[in-house]
């Protein structure tokens, strides 16, 4: 069983939001729901100011707080590391939403907190999910963490990487390339 991960090079993101809308269409999401988003940061003083953009989506944590708190195991960790939702079992208590330190959950019309599912059918077929395949700047790279020859591992070996909110013990599976 593959172990999937996602490597994000945020420095290349120019904030076009194609990832968000490509995902919404691929997954046929309701209007109010988006699985991924961008966070904007301004640093410095004019004229030496810069903007940073960080793409965010479900981190598919190895210690997912959303799955820990879910009373019915509606949210669960698959063998391949993907944190998945069985919508049949969801009681709509929104505990997962309050538990997620990444604000990754979005409530749908049926009052089920949805989230990015990492499109396993694409990963299994060796393809990039819509958010990645449409990205003109190749910000995202999904791949197998347990395959030493995978592109993601090669790229991770070339760069220093960091993760978000590691202090909460979530062990996220999204890695961000560190830039000076």
């Amino acid at each position: 069983m593959a172990r999937y991960g996602l490597l994000i090079d945020a420095s290349k993101c120019t904030g076009c939001h194609a990832c968000s809308i490509a995902c919404s269409m691929y997954n046929e999401l309701e209007e109010e729901v988006t699985y991924n988003r961008l966070e904007f940061i301004e640093r410095g003083k004019y004229p030496n100011a810069v903007m940073e953009i960080v793409p965010l989506q479900c981190m598919h944590c190895d210690n997912p707080p959303c799955a820990t708190v879910c009373p019915t195991n509606a949210t669960f960790k698959r063998e391949d590391g993907i944190v998945s939702i069985d919508e049949n079992k969801c009681i709509g208590c929104k505990y997962c939403m309050t538990a997620c330190p990444y604000d990754a959950r979005q409530l749908n019309e049926s009052r089920i907190p949805e989230k990015c599912r990492w499109c396993p059918e694409m990963l299994e077929a060796g393809k990039q999910p819509a958010c990645s395949s449409t990205c003109m700047n190749e910000v995202r790279l999904f791949g197998k963490l347990d395959d030493p020859d995978s592109e993601i591992n090669k790229k991770m070996a070339q760069h220093e990487v960091s993760q978000l909110v590691t202090e909460k013990g979530t062990k996220p599976r999204i890695y961000y390339i560190k830039r000076k």
């Binding site: 009373p71 195991n73 009681i91 009052r111 089920i112």
Partner: peptide, 25 residues
């Protein structure tokens, strides 16, 4: 407040003992 209160039945069939809401129920 619950989105799908009738799915509470799954608390019996698919309990998550780590969840405080399971214990709450």
């Amino acid at each position: 407040e619950l989105g799908s209160p009738f799915s509470m039945i799954h608390i019996l069939f698919s309990p998550n003992f780590q969840s405080a809401i399971f214990w709450m129920g």
